[in-house]
Nucleic acid binder design. Structure first.
Length: 334
DNA sequence: AAGCCTTTCAACCGCCAACGT
DNA sequence: GACGTTGGCGGTTGAAAGGCT
C-alpha cells in the first residue's frame, strides 16, 4: 500500500458528482481511441477534470459498450440469489457470471430487491419446513444465514482471494450450499458460457482500439483528434501538477506519440473482430442517439457534437442530453 | 396540490492486493 | 525485500424519482 497516494478529486478541485454528457463523450472518445491502459493518467490526457478512479468507475459501470441495461430478468435475479448464496458479497465475481451486468448494479439490485425477496422466501420456507427440519438428515443449513444477512454484516473477511477463479469454483466455508435450498442444482459453468450472445456480444475485457472500424471515429473524423488534443477545457495547469504531485509536462496526447502504447492488449487476434463488432454495434446506437447518423450528414453531426462538447457555445439544445437519451433508450434494446 | 416518506441507483470512499522499481 | 503506484473491490452515501397521505 502506498502512502504517497495523491488525494482524490475532492481535494484538488476536480469535478465530482454526476457526469455530464460532455464528460461522457470525452471519456468514450478517448477510450475508444487510446484504450485505458492507465486510469490515473487518463483524465489528464483526455482533458477531463476527474480523477482516474472516477473515470474508471464511470466507464465500468455506465459507459462500457458491453453493458446490458434495463431491468434484471427473473433468471438473472435467480442467478444472483444463487451466486450470492455461494459467494457472499463478492459482487465482482457474481458480475463475472452475468454478462453485461456490473458489480455495482448487482450490488444495488441485491440490496434493494433481492435481499428482501430472499428473506421473504426464507420466511415462507421456514414456516413450511419447520417441522421437516428435525427429521431431515442434513438438517439444512439455513440459506439466509449467508445470503440475507451477509450483505449487512461486514465482509466475510474476504480471505479466500480466489483471484482468477470465477463464479465460485471455490466455496467458502461459511457459505451455504444453496443447491440444497433451490429446487434444482445450478451449474455455474453454464453461466459462464450462457451469455446471451445474440444481440449482445460476449463482453470483452476491453475492446481493442476500434478506431480502425467505422463508427464514431468515422463520423467524428479528424475532429476527434482535436477533441482530444486541444485544451478545450479551461484547466489550470497547476491542477494537473497537483494531481500528479509533480510538475511533469502534460504528455502529448496526439495519437502518434502514444497511441498504441496505451491500447490494451487483452484481445488476441481471434477476439478482435468480435470486439469490433461489439463496438460497431454499440457505437452505431450511440451515434444514432447523438444524431451523428442520419440525413443531416456528418458535417452536421460533427457540428452537433462540437456543440455538445462545448466547443461552440453553451449546451442550449440538448433537449434531454443525447447521452442520457441514449441510455434511456438503452443500447441493448432488449 | 403540497409535503413527507420510501426507493432507487450513480458515485464516492477507504482499503487491499498486485505489480513495478 | 522494501517501498511506491495503480487497479479493483465492497460498503456507504446522497440526490433524484416515485409513491403515499
Amino acid at each position: 500500500m502506498g502512502r504517497g497516494r495523491a488525494p482524490c478529486c475532492a481535494k484538488v478541485g476536480l469535478n465530482r458528482g454526476s457526469w455530464t454528457p460532455q464528460e461522457d463523450m470525452r471519456l468514450i472518445a478517448y477510450i475508444q481511441k487510446h484504450g485505458h491502459a492507465n486510469w490515473r493518467a487518463l483524465p489528464k490526457q483526455a482533458g477531463l477534470l476527474r480523477c482516474g478512479k472516477s473515470c474508471r468507475l464511470r466507464w465500468i459501470n455506465y459507459l462500457r459498450p458491453d453493458l446490458k441495461r434495463g431491468n434484471f430478468t427473473a433468471d438473472e435475479e435467480e442467478t444472483i440469489i444463487k451466486l450470492h448464496g455461494l459467494l457472499g458479497n463478492k459482487w465482482s465475481k457474481i458480475a463475472a457470471c452475468l454478462p453485461g451486468r456490473t458489480d455495482n448494479e448487482i450490488k444495488n439490485v441485491w440490496n434493494t430487491h433481492l435481499k428482501k425477496k430472499v428473506a421473504q422466501r426464507e420466511q415462507k420456507k421456514a414456516g413450511a419446513t419447520k417441522n421437516d427440519a428435525e427429521a431431515s438428515g442434513d438438517a439444512g443449513t439455513p440459506l439466509t444465514s449467508s445470503s440475507a444477512s451477509s450483505s449487512t454484516t461486514t465482509n466475510n473477511s474476504s480471505g479466500g482471494s480466489d483471484a482468477g477463479q470465477q463464479c465460485g469454483t471455490s466455496k467458502k466455508p461459511d457459505m451455504v450450499d444453496i443447491s440444497a435450498f433451490e429446487p434444482e442444482h445450478i451449474d455455474i459453468s453454464d453461466m459462464l458460457v450462457d451469455a446471451p450472445t445474440g444481440a449482445f456480444p460476449a463482453p470483452q475485457p476491453m475492446p481493442p482500439s476500434p478506431c480502425s472500424s467505422s463508427s464514431l471515429t468515422t463520423c467524428i473524423g479528424g475532429m476527434e483528434e482535436e477533441m482530444l488534443d486541444l485544451p478545450v477545457i479551461d484547466i489550470e495547469p497547476e491542477i494537473w501538477s497537483i494531481i500528479d504531485g509533480d510538475s511533469a509536462d502534460v504528455p502529448d496526447v496526439s495519437g502518434a506519440s502514444h497511441g498504441d502504447a496505451t491500447v490494451p492488449r487483452t484481445a488476441n487476434a481471434a477476439s478482435v473482430s468480435e470486439a469490433e463488432e461489439a463496438n460497431d454495434w454499440w457505437l452505431e446506437n450511440l451515434e444514432k442517439e447523438l444524431g451523428l447518423r442520419g440525413p443531416t450528414g456528418e458535417t452536421q453531426a460533427q457540428s452537433d457534437l462540437l456543440d455538445q462538447m462545448g466547443f461552440a457555445g453553451p449546451l442550449g439544445n440538448t433537449e434531454g442530453d443525447p447521452v442520457s437519451t441514449y441510455f434511456e433508450t438503452g443500447p441493448t434494446n432488449c
